[in-house]
């Protein structure tokens, strides 16, 4: 797993209080990992801080699973 993927998973585990085993690429933040709308906003913010990127709202809407977050950040992280 890439370093980015490791960091993304760690943020998700920390913020959503879930087990590492649940954080699979297909896992949906809201449907599988118990996130509500505010949790999702917080996750995006944490990604922005950690990877020093700015994720526009229209793109943030497309980040709904662990895998989607990892691929977006692998592409955009500085």
């Amino acid at each position: 797993m890439s370093e980015i993927a490791e960091k993304v998973k760690a943020i998700i585990i920390d913020k959503l209080g879930v087990e590492a085993s649940e954080v699979t690429p297909e896992a949906s933040f809201t449907n599988d990992l118990g996130a509500d709308s505010l949790d999702t906003v917080e996750l995006i913010m944490e990604f922005e801080k950690e990877f020093n990127v700015s994720i526009p709202d229209d793109q943030a809407e497309n980040i709904g699973t662990v895998g989607q977050a990892i691929s977006y950040l692998e592409e955009h992280a500085k």
Binding site: L38, V41, E42, M45, E48, K49, S54
Partner: peptide
């Protein structure tokens, strides 16, 4: 100066 306020801050 970039506003990164946590969504849980106000609640």
């Amino acid at each position: 100066g970039t506003p990164r306020f946590n969504p849980f801050f106000i609640p």
